[in-house]
Amino acid sequence: MKGNEALAEAAIRAGCKCFFGYPITPQTELSEYLSKQMPKRGGVFLQAESEVAAINMVLGAGATGTRVMTSSSSPGVSLKSEGISYIAGSDVPCLIVNVERGGPGLGSIQPSQQDYWQATKGLGHGDFRLIILAPNSVQEVVNLVVRAFDLGEKYRVPVMLLSDGLLGQMMEPVEFPEISAEGADNSGWAAVGTKMQREHHIVNSLYIEANDLEEQVRKRYERYAVIEENESEGESYLCDDADIVITAFGATSRIAKSAVNKARAEGIKAGLFRPITLWPFPKKQLLDATKQAKAVLSVEMNMGQMIDDVKLALDCKIPVSFYGRTGGVIPSPNEVLEEIRKLNGGIK
């Protein structure tokens, strides 16, 4: 299946009942698939008048405790940032998909990872976080969509799945796991009518007294700390004896893996560390993966964004360099291999 379609199918199987979106390349197949399937399978598909409206529809549906999602691509996600901030401030769970493309501005429609900063640090105004999941195969897209809904409800946070034009358009075989789409018990906070049985629920991000707002934000950060402790995830490949560890996420990690294999064939001890959760960033796992490393190379489809988190995690104890292509250009394994060779020469 195509990555975008597999994502959509996984969402339905995970119990997503509502989709609100706006057309944009390269996430198109996702919304087209849902427009066909949702009405047949008891769900709601609605094409909104704008990304701004779509994310606010997500807020409304999510506020009722319904599993809900939206998808877009980079410029559209910028438009959604207002609503995402409100959703985070109102503790409403939902899934937001970004099938990244080139930027800034209208940029290009080619694959990119230029929204790492936006996703992990700047998705709207205020102190808040989203859980950011970064799959690197169509199968993992499916698995992480299911996990995204569960995590969102467990911690009452919005979750973003960061895909890109490569993963979205890629065709791979995929198996759908058995899913029990029970969902969490949202009856303690959701706006579904009091039935005259309880005090009214208010889904809200406004706290006009500074001390009240601080308390709300602090409580949210206590949850974030639990998420950092329990949900950080990364994958190591040939890192145990590696002199050079590449860090890469999403589709780029597959290119980097080819380069690592080529380097190993030349006798260079290279390894790959792939963060699966971009927030929380898997710091401990990265430290484990770089125990033997003399150099770290961050490979990204941008001008160097995740490298900041890699450096922070390593606390400047290992030199970290960068290789990336941007604007929608995809780096080749040989380009990455050349960087590995240079680093290998440097550490000898």
Binding site: K17, C18, F20, V44, L46, A48, V52, A53, A54, N56, M57, V58, L59, G60, A61, G62, A63, T64, T66, V68, E82, G83, Y86, S90, A191, V192, G193, T194, H200, H201, I202, V203, N204, S205, L206
Partner: peptide
């Protein structure tokens, strides 16, 4: 602050977005 005044369940929308939020509620429920 109308959410403090009505006894039914209430949602606070971003500026201008109430009809979109209401759409989400009504479509879901």
């Amino acid at each position: 602050f109308a959410y403090n005044y009505f006894g039914c369940d209430m949602i606070e929308a971003p500026h201008g977005r109430a009809p979109a939020v209401a759409t989400g509620v009504k479509r879901a429920r």
